[in-house]
Design a protein around this nucleic acid. Structure first.
Length: 482
RNA sequence: GCACCGUUCGUCUAGGGGUUAGGACACCGCUCUUUCACAGCGGUAACACGGGUUCAAUUCCCGUACGGUGUACCA
């Protein structure tokens, strides 16, 4: 049987980085096995819908390179792929369970349920629907139930959980899990607004869409017994479950925006390469074995297996993500990067933005930054002629040192004669100037960099000067010396 | 509270009955570049605790502690 998996987000906001990883694992697993990866929108909670969320999530996923074979945006033979468009289906299936005795009507109001929970808490028992004392099909009797229904009373359908039997299932990542029936709540399947809850809709759709593997976040593990019971109630075979560990904050709680960016679009906006993010996030909770840490999507697909997914949650290390991004920045073709950077350079009003030149600058500066866009800021002295301000302090230190001034003057005067075309000639000229002023070359380097770039750190100085060009160097020296 | 899940350097992790417990990020140091950085080299640093089983346990079993998730007419 061919593998069919699904990623099933709720359109309640932007795509979370943790969701991206779950989607990615589904995608990798499907592609590794030559299977099908499906996107299904679970919008059964009408109160939490966020306008545009579906589109945003799909575009974030696409940005990251997670593409679906079936879904609301691409179609497929198992549609519709949006639960609100499958409304009637759930009622039909829910009623099927009422008829076969595995689900029942309940008429309790929210206030009554709150009161029940309060009583239970006061008595020190776990809060759980008390089938024997609340207003439902069993306590009310068939006639009263029929009367209420005929009258149109608000009601829900609840799962009739066997009171004592153990519910067991095998999780592909966690092994065997056993929960006693007495711990499982009589879950609401159909809400009083007629919409299904997650549990019903999810099970019905997974069955109808012939899902073979349910790969989802660990937070679903506690409700899986309910789902197993649901499959049994329908007489269906349950898919294989695999609960992946959570992504964590530094304090080990579920990853949230308190500690930094968590939305995929935030990472994109910050300048992360999609493949770097994907590479990094794939390795949070999964390890392919071996020491390699750099994986393209194809390599991830090739290496992925559920067996090597970890059990414990993983703290999201932003520092390592940055490192990963800088690795990608260094390995990418400078000409492609130049094309990508061009709009930013134009926006900043830079004048020296011929693609070949930009590529040269990128090749020079990328060693020392994390994001491509940083080069636009960091390379201002190469892309244009407006240098950042030099502090008075620095200025004074420079002009106050006679040896340095002499050396710089010598360096500048030499410009008319020197044929300054490459790193070697710039270097030779600098050496001669230092010697002429009787200072050490080491004492010459930093002032030279400061005067010509207005920055105290940078890439290789003479390569930098070569890229700035003799003319511009001369101008900048002249304006400093005057 | 109850249920479930988890626990190897600060972090991501490899490993697995007998290992100098490996790699990566971060951190520190050295070298190089007559500067800063980059790079190269090196270093600090971990099997939560207690019982078993065993010739031998970080590895298997049981407890404990700690942490996380769940406990909704949310997903």
């Amino acid at each position: 049987m061919s593998v069919r998996v699904r990623f099933a987000p709720s359109p309640t906001g932007f795509l979370h980085i943790g969701s991206l990883r779950t989607a990615l694992y589904n995608y990798l697993f499907a592609k590794h096995h030559g299977g099908t990866c499906i996107l299904r929108i679970e919008d059964t909670d009408r109160t939490r819908l966020v306008e545009g969320a579906i589109e945003e999530q799909i575009s974030s996923l696409a940005w990251a390179g997670v593409v679906f074979d079936e879904g609301p945006h691409v179609g497929g033979n198992y549609g519709p792929y949006t639960q609100s468009e499958r409304f009637d289906l759930y009622r039909t299936y829910g009623m099927q369970l009422v008829e076969n005795g595995t689900a029942y009507y309940a008429f309790d109001t929210s206030d009554e349920l709150d009161a029940m929970r309060q009583r239970q808490q006061a008595a020190g028992i776990a809060p759980k629907y008390d089938r024997s004392s609340m207003r439902n099909q069993y306590t009310l009797g068939e006639q009263e139930t029929a009367r209420l229904l005929a009258e149109g009373a608000l009601h829900v359908i609840r799962l009739k959980v066997p009171l004592t039997a153990d519910v067991r299932f095998h999780d592909q990542i966690r092994g065997d899990v056993v929960v006693n029936g007495r711990e499982i709540d009589d879950q609401i399947l159909l809400k009083s607004d007629g919409f299904p809850t997650y549990h019903l809709a999810n099970v019905v759709d997974d069955h109808l869409m012939e899902i073979t593997h349910v790969i989802r976040a660990e937070e679903w593990l506690p409700s899986t017994p309910k789902h197993v019971l649901l499959y049994e109630a329908f007489g269906w075979t349950a898919p294989t479950f695999a609960h992946v560990p959570l992504l964590l904050n530094p304090d080990r709680s579920k990853m949230s925006k308190r500690h930094g960016d968590v939305m995929v679009r935030d990472f994109a906006a910050k300048g992360y390469f999609p493949d770097a993010l994907v590479n990094f996030v794939a390795l949070c909770g999964w390890h392919p074995g071996g020491d390699n840490e750099k994986f393209s999507m194809e390599e991830l697909i090739d290496a992925f297996s559920l067996e090597r997914v970890n059990k414990a949650g993983a703290v999201f290390d932003y520092k390592k993500l940055e490192w990963m991004n800088s690795e990608y920045l260094r390995s990418r073709d400078p000409h492609q990067l130049a094309t990508a950077l061009l709009p930013t350079l134009t926006e900043r009003g830079y004048t020296r933005i011929e693609p070949a030149f930009v590529a040269d600058v990128i090749a020079l500066l990328r060693e020392r930054v994390t994001f491509l866009a940083e080069i636009a800021e960091f390379g201002d002295y190469l892309f244009g002629d407006t240098l950042c301000a030099l502090s008075d302090e620095t200025q004074a230190a420079l002009t106050g040192n006679q040896g340095v001034v002499d050396a710089l003057r010598a360096f500048h005067e030499g410009f008319s004669d020197a044929t300054l075309t490459d790193e070697a000639t710039f270097k030779a000229h600098a050496q001669a100037s230092a010697e002429h002023a009787s200072i050490k070359m080491g004492a010459m380097m930093k002032p030279l960099r400061l005067v010509l770039t207005h920055r105290d750190v940078g890439a290789d100085l003479f390569r930098t000067l070569q890229l700035i060009g003799a003319d511009r160097c001369s101008h900048r020296l002249a304006s400093f010396l005057s």
